[in-house]
């Protein structure tokens, strides 16, 4: 549904854009696009919407080229920007009407449902809204047009946990209807919660694409030990930390060697868990750094 082929964007002024990003997202998939701020997430999104033009390579949505057929793409896309900037002097209801006018008539029952679920006040001016409420306007404006593809750039920032969970319910309902979702975020736990696959972007390069399942299945384990013995970290232990008599690290070696290492020390308490996506993510980042240093 969404296809990026060797997509590259250099900025004249700013050094980094994105470099050689290739990616294919299937219909009905929720794809998490994660990386820290400045990694190139927004650049990718902006290229898809043709706010900026690719330096080389191409991007397409449902076979439509992002430059040549941008209008076709925008007809089928709902977009939630990371920073919501709407016309301050407009009322929420007028704004949503305006946003919908480019697509056709407002689906009133659906609109009422969205407004009720998100607890949005339609009779206020945009300028009087908090950041979170502006985000809700963006969500309604994006979903109301029944898009085939949703492009979300940090969509949950500003939403309180309750609203985040309402938002995720809405996304799951969209997915059931066959909507393809491109979910850009730096928050891994939310990506882990909702996405089918994850792409990790770093300094403009896509360094890893995997299913959330597979990524969680990597052999890495989070180990937390209470001990008074001295433990010297080896090359399989990353994010090695000592706090209040507890030692914690992510173990990337095989399980057998972990057990034999643990049996050789005097342990008062131990927990071994599946690592959170954050930790795996750090693992990819650190490994990539090491690779760069050794080259």
């Amino acid at each position: 549904m969404i296809k990026l082929e060797a997509l590259t964007k250099y900025y004249k002024k700013h050094a980094r854009g994105i470099l050689d990003v290739s990616l294919e997202i299937k219909k009905g998939e929720i794809f998490g696009f994660i990386g820290p701020n400045g990694a190139g997430k927004s650049t990718t999104v902006r290229t898809l919407l043709n706010l900026i033009f690719p330096t080389s390579g191409s991007a397409s949505v449902d076979g439509n080229d992002c430059v040549r057929d941008t209008i076709e793409i925008r007809k089928m896309v709902g977009y939630i920007p990371s920073e919501v900037n709407f016309y301050d002097d407009m009322y929420v209801k007028d704004f949503i009407k305006y946003a919908t006018s480019f697509h056709g008539e407002v689906d009133q029952p659906f609109m009422d449902m969205l407004v009720e679920k998100l607890e949005l006040d339609l009779n206020r001016k945009i300028e009087d809204l908090s950041f979170g409420n502006k985000k809700k306007v963006a969500i309604v404006a994006a979903l109301i047009t029944h898009p085939k593809v949703l492009i979300l750039d940090e969509p949950t920032s500003g939403l309180d946990p309750l609203m985040q969970s309402v938002f995720f319910q809405l996304l799951e309902a969209e997915k059931k209807n066959g909507t393809t979702i491109f979910f850009s975020s730096h928050n891994l736990s939310e990506v882990q919660r909702i996405c089918d696959r994850v792409g990790i972007i770093k300094e403009g390069k896509l360094i890893k694409v995997e299913t959330v399942e597979d990524i969680m299945k990597t052999r890495a384990k989070t180990v937390r030990i209470k001990t008074e013995d001295e433990i010297t970290p080896n090359e399989h232990m990353i994010q090695f930390e000592k706090i209040n008599g507890y030692v914690s690290f992510v173990y990337t070696g095989d399980t057998k060697s972990l057990i034999s290492m643990l049996s050789s020390i005097n342990i008062q308490d131990v927990t071994i868990t599946e690592p959170a996506l954050e930790e795996i993510f750090m693992h990819y980042y650190e490994r990539d750094d090491q690779d760069e240093r050794t080259h």
Binding site: L51, R74, P81, N85, Y87, A141
Partner: peptide, 14 residues
């Protein structure tokens, strides 16, 4: 300047 162009250009209008 107000960054509303990001909204406008995400709509199907050339």
């Amino acid at each position: 300047d107000d960054k509303t162009i990001e909204f406008l250009l995400s709509k199907p209008i050339s």
